[in-house]
């Protein structure tokens, strides 16, 4: 007791437990999370990662632009970030939600431009899946992000109307079909004419984000930007769990 008072322990990395001087993650973890920036840049629209020096827009967006005006992510769905998302989502390591939400806040400030969103909305889970998992990881991330940026968060504006098969290993087209009409806005009055920030853990083909955006725009939202922890890399298959 006396020793811990005399020599208080410093902050520990939220992931590996090593000492931290600033922020939530240690230098080593931070470096691993940022390493992709030396090789990739985000697609102008959907935020999927493209090799540096190549085109500014991914092949998917050249074919058809997504309904949201911009999507950005903390990094690619691989390595340490993938492990962290796995631990949060499937192991239930909720203590990661706050540090990861702060990382999202940093990306919002850097990447989404000066237009401040009016409301943060997490991608909802069905009630059955929510009871099984006991929490919605997107909502935890949205709450941490909202707290960091002083933005209001509302997880009850939209709900998932029906169960959809888990998206693991589904192709892009199958995901679109799987999610058609899956989301419904319950309180259109709260979003009419407002700029929204949609939060999710992983953006893969963009099917979930697009389905949510379509529902929000149909209900009167002025515009939707998307922020996720991870995204795919062009030409690399990335199947979120």
């Amino acid at each position: 007791m006396l020793l811990s008072w005399l020599f208080p322990r410093g902050k520990a990395c939220a992931w590996c437990g090593r000492p931290v001087h600033q922020g939530f993650f240690c230098t080593s973890c931070r470096q691993q999370l940022q390493a992709w920036q030396q090789h990739y840049h985000p697609c102008l629209y959907c935020g999927r990662l493209l090799p540096l020096g190549k085109q500014a827009v991914c092949s998917q967006c050249r074919e058809e632009l997504p309904p949201f005006y911009k999507a950005r992510a903390v990094g690619p769905y691989q390595g340490l970030l993938k492990e962290m998302i796995w631990a949060l989502k499937y192991q239930g390591r909720r203590s990661l939600a706050n540090p990861l939400g702060r990382l999202l806040a940093g990306v919002v400030v850097r990447e989404l431009g000066p237009g401040r969103p009016d409301l943060v909305i997490p991608v909802p889970l069905t009630s059955t899946r929510l009871r099984v998992r006991t929490f919605n990881q997107a909502e935890l991330l949205a709450l941490a992000l909202g707290q960091e940026l002083g933005l209001p968060v509302n997880g009850e504006v939209m709900f998932r109307v029906r169960e959809t098969a888990p998206q693991v290993n589904l192709s892009r087209r199958s995901r679109w079909q799987n999610l058609g009409g899956a989301f419904q806005v319950t309180a259109p009055g709260k979003i009419t004419g407002r700029r929204l920030l949609l939060v999710d853990d992983v953006l893969t083909t963009g099917a979930t984000a697009s389905a949510c955006t379509n529902a929000l725009l149909a209900a009167g939202a002025a515009g939707v930007a998307v922020i996720t922890l991870a995204t795919g890399i062009e030409n690399l298959p990335c199947f979120s769990p």
Partner: peptide, 10 residues
């Protein structure tokens, strides 16, 4: 460890 895609009720 819970397996991805497994939604057995607890």
């Amino acid at each position: 460890m819970t397996v991805a895609g497994s939604y057995a009720p607890v």
